[in-house]
């Protein structure tokens, strides 16, 4: 147990100093890994803990990114202030759509969430309300400004993103062990029993959806300011599939697993970039192989043993 902790700490330290030894390209790869890690952790609440088949997470991410982009470009509000605003918008959006569909089960929920992400993308492409700029998207988004310091290069973004990732990990690991987190896992394991124990299933599922969406929306704002231009292409169904895969390959419901999953799905293919066209072929094969040999993901969720005080 102690050894494991030491290794964890070593890895974290290695990660945090790595930008000093890496060139811009690989730092940028790590930044992307970090963004996907945070996104996947937010999906993990819905898919991993609560077991809801959500394959449309890019929709929430898109709502957040577009909210931030529109407000930033129109009213010049700094991105970091817009982060929570983007999160709230994404959360409200999630609340509205979750209400009617939350009672759907398994694969039906899966197809509905795919439908939602596609509807959002089509709406963005069609320049809905004249706000989203159609296929061109929105450009000229500001870079984040941290107390007068402008985050610009991949090196800067690395520290911003991994700072956010640390906060996310900290909060979500607290959440995992909270009463609420345990209730979600209970719903995943046995919905009927959970309901029987007095858990309001619809309410808990909706809240899981909203929390996941808020987090995805916030990171959407950061993504928008990193790219300085966003277009509907960045939020298609395929993005949702990637997030879905990260969570399941890493180990749904396990924070460490999800982060490792982001490294494998986002970071590793970069090593094969020189194979160009054959790259995705290998990627597809690897997905199958991974599931065959580690069907619960690399880190399956740890079975927790809670000490119950028996009177």
């Amino acid at each position: 147990m102690k050894n494991k902790k030491i290794i964890d700490v070593l890895i974290c330290v290695a990660l945090f100093v790595s930008p000093f030894f890496l060139n811009m390209y690989w730092t940028d790869v790590l930044v992307n890994v970090g963004i996907y890690a945070i996104l996947s952790l937010s999906l993990n609440i819905i898919l991993g803990y609560c077991g809801l088949f959500q394959m449309g997470h890019a929709a929430f991410y898109a709502v957040g990114a577009y909210t931030a982009a529109i407000l930033n470009v129109k009213y010049n509000i700094p991105i970091l202030i817009l982060m929570p605003v983007a999160g709230i918008f994404a959360g409200i959006f999630a609340f509205i759509i979750a209400k009617p569909i939350i009672h759907l089960r398994g694969d039906y929920l899966l197809i509905v969430t795919i439908g939602i992400v596609e509807i959002v993308r089509i709406a963005l492409v069609n320049n809905v309300f004249g706000l989203t700029g159609g296929a061109n998207g929105i450009f000229g988004i500001d870079r984040p400004n941290v107390f007068g310091f402008i985050v610009k290069t991949p090196f800067h973004f690395f520290y911003l993103i991994y700072f956010l990732l640390s906060i996310t990990v900290l909060l979500f690991s607290r959440f995992e062990n909270s009463k609420f987190g345990r209730a979600l896992v209970y719903i995943k394991e046995d919905e009927v029993a959970a309901e029987g124990s007095g858990i309001n299933i619809a309410k808990y599922k909706t809240i899981a959806f909203v929390i996941g969406a808020v987090w995805a929306g916030m990171i959407g704002a950061i993504f928008a300011s990193k790219m300085t231009i966003i277009s509907p292409d960045s939020f298609n169904f395929w993005e949702s599939v990637i997030l879905f895969t990260i969570v399941l390959i890493g180990g749904s419901g396990n924070i460490k697993g999800v982060i490792l999953g982001s490294f494998l799905i986002i970071g590793l293919p970069e090593l094969f970039r020189d194979f160009a066209s054959a790259r995705m072929l290998i990627f597809g094969m690897a997905m199958i192989a991974m599931m065959i040999f580690k069907s619960e993901g690399i880190f399956p969720p740890v079975r927790k043993i809670y000490k119950i005080a028996i009177k």
């Binding site: 399941l248 054959a278 597809g284 690897a286 599931m291 065959i292 069907s295 619960e296």
Partner: peptide, 26 residues
């Protein structure tokens, strides 16, 4: 994957889809 969790087979199916699509392209 018959005895594995349901979603693992979904990921495997997605992987197969990516594989076949790119095989056709190559």
């Amino acid at each position: 994957l018959r005895k594995a969790p349901r979603l693992s087979a979904v990921v495997s199916a997605l992987g197969a889809s990516i594989f076949l699509q790119n095989a056709v392209m190559l």
